[in-house]
């Protein structure tokens, strides 16, 4: 199932690339290539941690209070998320069409502590890496500003505490994105999906 998903994403990427016609030396596309790095809000998986919309259990219930480990066992400390770090490479085939490849990373960090001494005994960190190709459609082109929407389909690899590596489909939709600048540009997106839910901002370079 997961292999089929990845294969379908790759085929989509190739089809879109084949459909685009390269125009060398076009004044409409002064810079064909872009690289950028960005930082975004929590991914869908992390949304479960603190959104009532997704929560299906009572987080105040401390679980089994009828065992000695409930008194003397290690306990979990505060939980932190890193947010989503992303890196992207874009190839602009036409004024209105760009293909992107993006890599994203985020982590949820939590330590464990001894009930007797309070000293840290370990952690229950989890990490996620996502790789997605995107199809990006530009609907506003100005010398310094362009706006776009995009959709990406790829793969997420999650490493959770006390668990082996897991693979999940990755989907991301960006209804609104804006890039401002010429050779050096800033970007801001609103999007939702398994990569992030909320917004992302970043900085890039065109060449």
């Amino acid at each position: 199932m997961k292999r089929s998903f990845v294969l379908a994403a790759f085929v989509l990427f190739c089809c879109l690339a084949a459909a685009a016609v390269e125009r060398k030396g076009s004044r409409e596309i002064p810079f064909r290539y872009e690289v950028n790095v960005g930082y975004g809000t929590f991914p869908f998986a992390d949304a479960n941690n603190f959104s009532d919309m997704f929560r299906t259990y009572d987080i105040t219930w401390l679980g089994n209070t009828g065992s000695l480990s409930s008194v003397y066992g290690d306990y979990s400390g505060p939980e932190y998320i890193t947010g989503v770090f992303s890196a992207e490479f874009n190839v602009r085939f036409k004024k209105w069409f760009t293909l992107s490849s993006q890599m994203n990373f985020d982590a949820v960090l939590q330590g464990t502590y001894s009930s007797l001494t309070g000293e840290r005994t370990g952690n229950t960190n989890s990490y996620m890496l996502s790789v997605l190709p995107y199809a990006k459609f530009t609907y506003l082109n100005r010398p310094l500003v362009y706006m776009y929407s995009s959709i990406g389909l790829g793969l997420s690899m999650a490493l959770e505490h006390n668990s082996s590596l897991s693979l999940y489909p990755a989907v991301q939709v960006v209804p609104v994105g804006v890039a401002v600048g010429k050779r050096v540009y800033g970007l801001f997106e609103l999007g939702f999906g398994t990569v992030y839910c909320g917004c992302k901002a970043g900085i890039g370079y065109r060449f």
Binding site: L62, Y75, T82, Y113, S115
Partner: peptide
């Protein structure tokens, strides 16, 4: 946004 999302638990001893 890179923030503390829960206070976790405390010692039950």
């Amino acid at each position: 946004v890179s923030c503390r999302i829960s206070d976790g638990f405390s010692s039950r001893h």
